[in-house]
Design a protein around this nucleic acid. Sequence first.
DNA 1: AACTGGGGCAACCGCGAAACC
DNA 2: CGGTTTCGCGGTTGCCCCAGT
Length: 278
Amino acid sequence: MGHHSCCNQQKVKRGLWSPEEDEKLVQYITTHGYGCWSEVPQKAGLQRCGKSCRLRWINYLRPDIRRGRFTPEEEKMIINLHGAVGNRWAHIASHLPGRTDNEIKNYWNSWIKKKIRKASSNNTKTNLNQDSHFTSPQILFPYLNLSTKSPPQDTLLPLKTTTFMFDIGPTMTAEALGLTSNTRVDHILHEAALLNQETWHQQEMVQFTPLMENLENLMLPMDVQNSAISEAECLQQRNEMNEWIEAQNSFSGYFLWEQAQGNIGGEEESSTLLASFP
DNA sequence: AACTGGGGCAACCGCGAAACC
DNA sequence: CGGTTTCGCGGTTGCCCCAGT
C-alpha cells in the first residue's frame, strides 16, 4: 500500500472540528499526552486521522497558544525574519512564542496581497519612504551590486547573525561564547530582530559584534575539521557564502519593496529581474 | 431575498526527513 | 542495513462570513 494512507479510511471524518471533537482531543492529550499521533484518534475516540489530530492540537488546542492580532513587535519580527530567511514559517514561528507557522504564513500571505493591492491602486509612486517596512532601493542599490565590497549600510537583520543562527542552533548559551550574560543566543537574536536599524548600529559595536566574532572563532575549527580543508580555504568559502547570502537577502528585500510600491508586478518582470541578477 | 466575489482562516495534501523495526 | 511508518513542513485548497448588488 501507499505509505501516505493515513486519511483514506472510509470512516475518517474531515473538515472543521466540532467542539465535541475538540473536547475529546484535549481530554485525551492532557491526561495521556501524545506518544504516537497515529494512535491518538482511536484512543481518544475520534473518527479522524492522526495527522488531523496533530494539526488541530498544534495550531489550535494546545494550551500555550497565543491568539488575537499580531502586535507591532511581532509584525516587525515576522517581516525582519522573513526578509532574512524567506518562507521558512516554522523557523519564524519558533521566534514568536505561542504563534504557529500556519498563522504566520496566513498572515504573511494576506499581508503581501494587501500591500500589492494597495500599491497598484495608488500608482502615484509618491511617499516612497512612508512605509517603514522596507529599506529604500537607493540604499540597497550599491549593496546589490556585488562589485562594492563595503559592508551593508542598512539591512533588515544582520546577515551574519542569520547565517549563524542556523549553523549553531538556538540552544547555545552566550556564556559558552565567552559573554558574561546568561542569555541564550536566540534571545539575543530575538532582540536584534526587534531593533530598528539605527539602534542596531548603536548596539552592534558593544554587544553583537563580539558575539559574532566569538561565533566565527568557535565555528572555524569545526568547519575545517568537517570539510578537511585548510583554514584559509575555509575562511574564503565562508566569505563567499556570506556575500552570496547578503546579495540574496538584499535582492529579495529590494524586490519586495518595488513590488509593494507597484513598480513591478507580473511574473515577467520578476523573472527579468532575476535573470539580470548575478 | 438571493447571488456573488473576495478576504480570512482552518484544514488538507504531498513530499522529504526522521524514526522505527 | 533496507523497508516501512510517522512526523513536520510548506504550498494549497476550500469553507464560512460578509459587504455590495
